[in-house]
Structure formats: structure tokens, C-alpha cells
Write a protein that binds this DNA or RNA. Structure first.
Length: 864
RNA sequence: GGGCGCAUAGCUCAGUGGUAGAGCUCUCGGCUUACAACCGAGCGGUCACAGGUUCGAACCCUGUUGCGCCCACCA
């Protein structure tokens, strides 16, 4: 690239597609992302395991954000000298994947039962090999610096061993058991679901009142699910409810069935809701199940696994939603409906994967007894061994781990880790570890494990557990877990439980860094139905991977949601282009990084280097806070507004003079450090530019900048700030007066004692001021920053416009003087305000007074 | 039903006691040999509302209104 610049052939625009593929190849082939647990044993380690994307997934904006953050953290730590590992992998995603493959089969007119279990699972593996894992290729487009040699899959052999091992251990410890309970059941997926796989949505239902029994022995119950009355085995009332006290213990007739059921008293009933009497259907409602347990009521299942009425009679064969109106109609015929149905909004559970209304169902399932595990998971955060960031998210975490129900882990699916329990011919049960063989002739449980069971092992199964591997010793616990707050419960809390359990109380990660959800430019959730979903690959194609990442990171305030719009990605692309051109300018002017910085720095050089030190400190602080938005902002502002707009412009003068080499060195220095600081955020463009600037191999392995306090120079900063004010004021004058930017104006600059005298040439260049020729007549005089700028505008100035302008400024300055004076005369203020505030107020007053003097002089100098 | 959070410029958001900020948008003027994917200048906000604390409040307290999210076994 350098040679082409020398030949003047460097394109004026950065084209991401020309560099991204090439650089990624180079990074991978040179092994820069490969971790080595034995290398540099004295150095700290930094490890992140990727939240494994579903094998069915493809890269969406949420991944792009998640990965951008992890890559930024890892790249920075690597530059800081840590032994880093960012470990990639995928999740087999039980139900989701099975559904995908079943849909494929359906196109061929087949169901999984036509294939049989073995052939179906084989088919899923085949699918996984062909179209699963598309996302891995997409991660390369994004530039993810992961260690591909350690890629893991939640269903591969090593992870299967981990699953078997921990299952056996939990089983032997009595923390896994099998029980007949009421669980969430999806009548479409035909499997049990855990509590968190059920999503509640408010639906408009109908609340209906039905009279049970007859005469004095009658009682009115209210329900939204009339069809379940076929399975009622009691009516419950509150024990203190005087209205029904006489009925408790008596039997009443259940309509339509002729069965007689008892009235029981149960604390759980709310006397103020409806009639205060509840029908009890233990087989089809979780609360009723518990009431049934307390009162020894029979459980009568009236629906099959597909939600179809299965009891003999007129409703047999009807789907639950068909049965409901049918039952109501039949009741109405008998005069049992005492009140017309009325609308009632209530929360209804839906299957997370297919949105089918969940049907509570009594069945035999496997459960993890979570109480001791959840306690440990809560304590690790309470003790401060694991830090949740941002901290307010900890409240949600505690609310969940402290109130967790037992976890139903069995699924009636075929795709997943099969439960490692075998049953003997006479009903014996044995749990078989990974290196054991089941007794001859015994049969394995047909259920598979909840997909989150294997995900929960991820931070250590990926490092080789249950084996004692160098990876596990070096990289566990991992440094930080980066993920969206939406899976705090699904995944994070479970990794905590299993990590602490399997690794003898050692937490799986030191920090949980939660980010928000990517949203559209109006803050709305991206969803297919809104039509506002953005594909990050489109952005990468059009604006580049760096622009895509920078846009996401720029919006990533800690824990906050991230709104994005393609317009903003173009802004980020422009920023990359700005860096490109700044470097192009520097290289064309001989910028370099050879040797020490000049011993004696010019003011502009001292200023930009001083600012750079401050930027390094700020970027470090923001990284430590996971505040990528601020890190981006600081760098964006420094690079564009300070370095490009001021330093580069100021540098043009000395570059043409005898001190040019000092300036070349400083230009090189600032760019060098700036590109390093930006590399974790925008890896491609910085790599391309930095290698061109320095001639070094790769920025990936370069050192992270360290702040040099000796380069801080407050005086230089003050001087340049003063220069900026002067230039801005004169530019304002020029713009207001309609002087074309390119128009050269003769001017005399009177510096008095101002140090800005050193910058006369620069000021003249920036303001397009020429030396006055003969016949110079100053038609405007601007006293700014102690410098009098006398301009010959050849009589074109608009006196009225300028007068209005100056008077406006004057009014503002006088208001400031009023306010500051009032404050300084206020005894309470003087007594109670901190010294720094008083000082600041004084200097503000002085500044305003100086402005008034200046403005008055300017006004006086205006031609009449 | 419980919990958490948010209301600041046209839009999206920073700003946790001391002169209201950024990006984008908008207006005006410019192809000034790094960059028009650019440069320069500018317009734009009684910081949701009502009280309170304080010398001083966008910021702390109370209430009101309007949103958002999470959890949830009132049928």
C-alpha cells in the first residue's frame, strides 16, 4: 500500500470489501487468535466462551452486537499482553432444531415417526452438517477473533461426556429425580416444557359462571376453561367463607357427568374473586393439582397429549378449543349457566417455540432439585465473587434464583442428549456414567434432556471438563460472560448453578456483562411482523464490518438497548473513511514512527499529544465499565474533531517548513496510538492502515497504548483552545458577512503580548487571510483572545447584520455577568459552595466581562 | 397481581447538585490538492407535570400522568 501512495495511486475511499476477506485469512493463517494455555504462564489469562448460537440460527443484529463486544474485549486484552481465548461454538437447540427438520420432512410428506427415531436423529445430524452452522461463516464476515481450533458443539462427544458425568453426579447426590407432577406441556411439540420455555400473553377470554349441584346443595363456580369441568374432582372454597361453610365436606353433583364431588376448604381460594368458589381439576391445572394433593383428591385426565378430549361421552374427540363452546352449550341447555359469559383478560401460557397454548398435564418427568444449587448461585453474586454488570440487573437475578421451582429437564423429543438412565426388566433403575455400560437387556429412558442442560455446562465443558485439561486449568473461571439480559434466567443462572456444582464451588465467570437488545431507529423491537428486521450482513456488504460493529458499539451503553439505523451505519462508514484519509494524508507527507518523539515539541504537537494521553485514560476507563458507547464517542471525537479538523490542518504549515520531520514523527505517533485504540472496535480498517503506517506485521499482536503522564501539557492545551476560539470567531464573522470560504481577505493581526503570535502563519492559513498590500483599509476589527484581527473586507460588510449579532452576544454576556455577580454576592453561596465552584464562577465572570469589553469595542469599531 | 426502569433538541440517546450535550436531521456558504462518504458557520430544549429539600435541582425526596420491560398458579 505504501508504494501505491508514493505513486499517488491510493484510492480516496476506503473499500471494506477489498481488505476484509484478505485480512481475516491472514489473521487465521498466522494463528493470532489461537490460545496456548502453556505459553507465558506468568501472564494473566483472559477467556470468554461465546454464548453458543443455535445451530438453526443465522447472524442477526443481536449476535453482531454480542460478538462485537466480546471481540472488542478480547482484542484489547490480547494487546495488553494477556493470554487470551475466545472460544466459539454452537448449541444443538433441541426443540428448535427438531422443529426445523420436522418441517423439512413435512415437505416430503413425512413425519419423524415415518423414519423412526434412529433415522430421524441421523437426518438431523445430516442437516446439521449441511445447513446448520451457517452462522459460523457469518462470524468470519464480522471479523470475530475466535480460536477456531477449539470450536465446540453442545452435542459433540466431549460435551456428551460432560453431560453424562454431571447427570450421574447429580443423580447420585439425589439432586435429580423422576416424579409424576403437573408440568407445562406443548400439545403441538408433544413434549414437556420448563417454566421459562412458557411465555405468557394476555388474552381476552370468557369468564363463565356455572351452577354445580342442586337446590340448597348448589354452588356457583367461575371458570375460563369450561371444558376442564369434565375432569373436576372437587369444588374448593375458602375455609373462612361463611357463605359456603355449610357445604364443606358435602358431595354435590357435577353437571353433565352425574359424578358426585366433594366441596373442600382450601386457604388458596380467594373469596373475593368471582363467587369465591373454584372448580378443582387436578389433572389440568397446576393450582388445582396442589389443592388435589392437599386434600387427597383423585386426578382425572380428560385430554390426551394433543389436547383432545379423551373421556367417553358426547365430547370425546373434540379439540380443547372446540370442546369449550360445546360444553358451555350443553350446560346452558341444562340451565346450568347462571350468568352470561363475560369477557375476561388473563395471562395464557404459550410454547416459546411454536406459540401453541400450553396445556398443563400430569406426567412422569425428570427434575433437578434446584434449591441447593440456586442457593449457591445466589450466594456467589451476593458474596461479590461474581459481579453482575450493570449492577441493577442483579435484582432480577436474585428474584429468580431465590424463587426457583424445580427444573423439569426431560423432553419427549428425539434430538438431544438422551437421559442416561436405564430400566431393568423388573422396573429397576440405574444411572449410567460416561465410561460405564448398562446391563445387558436393559432399556434406556426414551426422553432427552432440556437443551439448556448442556448449555449450562458450557463454560467448563468447552475447556475439556470432566477431564483435567491445561485449558481448564488456565482458562477457568472465564473472565467475563457477555450476553443479552434476555437470557439471564435461561442460561446465565443455570451456568452459575452447574459451574459452582461441578467445579467445586468455583464460579464459571468473574463478571456477567449484560447488554441490551438491538432495536430499530425508533427504539422498537425488531420483529418480522413489524418488518423492521435488519440483516447485519447487508450492512457489512454495503458499509463494511467495521462500520457495522462501530454503529452497534456506539449505541451500547451499559445494559441499555441499542437502537440502530442504516443511516448511522453509513455515518460509521464515513468515520472509517475519515481514518483512511487522515492516514493517507499522513503517509503522503512522510509520517513515520521511527525513533523517539522530538525533544522539543511545538505547541500544536504538545497539545495533540497531551490530548491523546487523556483519551487513552478515558478509553481505558470506559472499557473497564463496559461502556462501549463512551469509548466510541471519545475516540470518534478525538479522531475527527481534534486530530483531523485541527491538528492535521495546523500541521500543514510546519510540514512545508524546516521543522517538518518533527511534525511527521508526531503525526505518525498520534495515528499509531489512535489506530491501536480503535482496533478492538474497528479491527479491519485499523489493521490495514496501521500496517501501512508502521510496516509491522499485524496490529492484532501490537501493544495497547499506555498513558504517558509526562506528555500532559495544560499550557499547550490552553493555548490551542485559545487559538480555536479565535479562529472560530473570525470564521463566524466571515460566514455571517457572506465572505466565501475560498475568498482571501487582506488582514493585519496585532498580537499584543499573546502567545498566539507564534501561530500567525497557521491562523492566516486557516482563515485565508493574506498580507495586506498597499491601500489596506481595515473595515472590521475583531478583538478576540487578546488578538486584534483587522480585516479589509473591501467595504462589503453588512454592518446591520454584524451589529445585531454583536448585540445578541453582548446581551448574553451581560446576563452572565448578572448571574455570576449575584452568586458571588450571595453570602450563602460563598459560605456553602465548594471552593472549585466559586473559582469557576469568578473566572466565568471575568470571561464575561472581557467579552463585554471586546464586544463593545467591536460595536464601536463598526462603521456608522 | 408483584418487581424494575424510562420520560432531556425534529429523531435516537448521553448527562446522579454548580453556565443544558452528542450523533443524525435541518438552514446557509463552499469541490480550500487527505477526505463532497468532505469542509466551515448556524438554527433548535421553561430537561413530562405538580409540590418539596437546597445558596443552587435535568440530577435528591413526594405525588400525578404516560410509556416500556421482567416475573406471576385469581380460577
Amino acid at each position: 500500500m505504501t508504494e501505491s501512495i508514493e505513486r499517488g495511486e491510493l484510492p480516496t475511499h476506503y473499500t471494506p470489501a477489498d481488505v476484509e476477506g484478505r485480512l481475516y485469512e491472514r489473521w487465521i493463517s498466522s494463528g493470532l487468535f489461537a490460545a496456548d494455555p502453556t505459553r507465558h504462564p506468568a501472564r494473566p489469562h483472559f477467556s470468554i466462551v461465546i454464548p453458543p448460537p443455535n445451530v438453526t440460527g443465522s447472524l442477526h443484529m443481536g449476535h453482531a452486537l454480542d460478538h462485537s463486544i466480546q471481540d472488542a474485549l478480547t482484542r484489547r486484552r490480547r494487546m495488553q499482553g494477556a493470554e487470551t481465548l475466545w472460544l466459539p461454538g454452537m448449541d444443538h437447540a433441541g426443540i428448535a432444531t427438531q422443529n426445523v427438520v420436522e418441517r423439512e420432512l413435512a415437505k416430503e410428506g413425512l413425519s419423524r415417526h415415518d423414519l423412526g427415531r434412529e433415522a430421524f436423529v441421523e437426518r438431523v445430524w445430516q442437516w446439521k452438517g449441511e445447513s446448520g452452522g451457517r452462522i459460523l461463516g457469518q462470524m468470519k464476515r464480522l471479523g470475530d477473533g475466535v480460536d477456531w481450533s477449539r470450536e465446540a458443539f453442545t452435542m459433540d462427544d466431549q460435551r456428551a461426556r460432560a453431560v453424562r458425568t454431571i447427570f450421574k453426579r447429580l443423580y447420585d447426590d439425589g439432586l435429580i429425580h423422576r416424579a409424576e407432577r403437573i408440568i407445562n406441556w406443548c400439545p403441538r411439540c408433544l413434549t414437556a416444557l420448563s417454566d421459562i420455555e412458557v411465555e405468557h400473553a394476555d388474552l381476552e377470554g370468557e369468564l363463565i359462571s356455572i351452577r354445580y349441584g342442586a337446590g340448597v346443595d348448589s354452588i356457583v363456580v367461575v371458570t375460563t376453561r369450561a371444558e376442564t369441568m369434565l375432569g373436576d374432582t372437587a369444588v374448593a372454597v375458602h375455609p373462612d367463607d361463611d357463605r359456603y361453610r355449610h357445604l364443606v365436606g358435602r358431595q354435590i353433583e357435577l353437571p353433565l357427568t352425574g359424578r358426585r364431588i366433594p366441596v373442600v376448604a382450601d386457604e388458596h381460594v380467594d373469596p373475593s374473586f368471582g363467587t369465591g368458589a373454584v372448580k378443582v381439576t387436578p389433572a389440568h391445572d397446576p393450582i388445582d393439582f396442589e389443592i388435589g394433593q392437599r386434600h387427597g383428591l383423585p386426578s382425572l385426565t380428560v385430554m390426551d397429549e394433543r389436547g383432545v378430549i379423551s373421556v367417553h361421552g358426547p365430547f370425546e374427540g373434540l379439540d380443547r378449543f372446540e370442546a369449550r363452546p360445546a360444553v358451555v352449550a350443553a350446560l346452558r341447555e341444562q340451565g346450568r349457566v347462571v350468568k352470561e359469559v363475560r369477557p375476561h383478560e388473563h395471562a395464557v401460557g404459550h410454547c416459546q417455540r411454536c406459540a401453541t397454548v400450553v396445556e398443563p398435564r400430569v406426567s412422569l418427568q425428570w427434575f433437578v432439585r434446584v434449591a441447593p444449587l440456586a442457593k449457591a448461585a445466589g450466594d456467589a453474586v451476593r458474596d461479590g465473587r461474581v459481579r453482575i454488570h450493570p449492577p441493577q440487573m442483579a435484582a432480577r437475578y436474585f428474584a429468580w434464583v431465590d424463587n426457583m421451582h424445580d427444573w423439569c429437564i426431560s423432553r419427549q423429543l428425539w434430538w438431544g442428549h438422551r437421559i442416561p438412565v436405564w430400566y431393568g426388566p423388573s422396573g429397576e433403575t440405574v444411572c449410567i456414567g460416561p465410561d460405564e455400560t448398562p446391563p445387558e437387556g436393559w432399556t434406556q429412558d426414551t426422553d432427552v434432556l432440556d437443551t439448556w442442560f448442556s448449555s449450562a455446562l458450557w463454560p467448563f465443558s468447552t475447556l475439556g471438563w470432566p477431564d483435567d485439561t491445561p485449558d481448564l486449568r488456565r482458562f477457568y473461571p472465564t473472565s467475563v460472560l457477555v450476553t443479552g439480559y434476555d437470557i439471564l434466567f435461561f442460561w446465565v443462572a443455570r451456568m452459575m448453578m452447574f459451574g459452582l456444582y461441578a467445579m467445586d464451588g468455583t464460579e464459571p465467570f468473574k463478571v456477567i456483562a449484560l447488554h441490551g437488545m438491538v432495536r430499530d431507529q425508533h427504539g422498537k423491537k425488531m420483529s418480522k411482523s413489524f418488518g423492521n428486521v435488519v440483516d447485519p450482513l447487508d450492512w457489512i456488504d454495503r458499509s463494511g464490518a467495521d462500520a457495522t460493529r462501530f454503529t452497534l458499539l456506539r449505541g451500547a451503553s451499559p445494559g441499555g438497548d441499542v437502537p440502530v439505523a442504516e443511516e448511522w451505519a453509513q455515518g460509521s462508514r464515513n468515520f472509517c473513511n475519515k481514518l483512511w484519509n487522515a492516514t493517507r494524508f499522513a503517509l503522503m507527507n512522510g509520517a513515520h514512527v521511527r525513533g523517539d518523539l522530538p525533544a522539543k515539541l511545538g505547541t500544536a504537537d504538545a497539545w495533540i499529544l497531551s490530548r491523546l494521553q487523556q483519551v487513552i485514560a478515558e478509553v481505558d476507563a470506559h472499557f473497564e465499565d463496559f461502556d462501549f458507547a463512551k469509548a466510541c464517542e471519545v475516540l470518534y471525537h478525538f479522531a475527527w474533531d481534534e486530530f483531523c479538523d485541527w491538528y492535521v490542518e495546523l500541521a500543514k504549515v510546519p510540514l512545508a517548513g524546516p521543522e517538518a520531520d518533527d511534525t511527521r514523527r508526531v503525526l505518525g505517533e498520534v495515528l499509531d496510538k489512535l489506530l491501536r485504540l480503535l482496533h478492538p472496535l474497528t479491527p479491519y480498517v485499523t489493521e490495514e492502515l496501521w500496517t501501512a503506517l508502521t510496516g509491522a506485521e499485524s496490529l492484532v499482536a501490537a501493544d495497547w497504548p499506555v498513558r504517558r503522564g509526562s506528555l500532559t501539557d495544560r499550557a499547550a492545551e490552553a493555548e490551542i483552545t485559545s487559538l480555536q476560539r479565535l479562529v472560530t470567531e473570525v470564521r463566524r464573522f466571515r460566514a455571517d458577512q457572506g465572505l466565501k470560504p475560498g475568498q482571501r481577505v487582506p488582514a493585519v493581526l496585532e498580537f499584543g503580548g499573546s502567545p498566539l503570535a507564534d501561530h500567525e502563519e497557521a491562523i492566516r492559513t486557516l482563515l485565508r487571510l493574506t498580507a495586506p498590500a498597499g491601500g489596506f483599509t481595515a473595515t472590521a476589527s475583531l478583538p478576540v483572545e487578546g488578538v486584534a484581527v483587522r480585516l479589509d473586507t473591501a467595504g462589503v460588510i453588512d454592518v446591520e447584520a454584524e451589529r445585531k449579532r454583536l448585540e445578541k452576544d453582548l446581551a448574553a454576556a451581560r446576563k452572565e455577568v448578572d448571574q455570576s455577580t449575584r452568586k458571588l454576592n450571595n453570602q450563602d453561596f460563598m459560605a456553602k459552595a465548594p471552593e472549585a465552584v466559586v473559582t469557576k464562577t469568578r473566572s466565568r465572570l471575568e470571561q464575561a466581562e472581557a467579552d463585554i469589553a471586546r464586544l463593545e469595542r467591536q460595536l464601536a469599531a463598526l462603521p456608522a
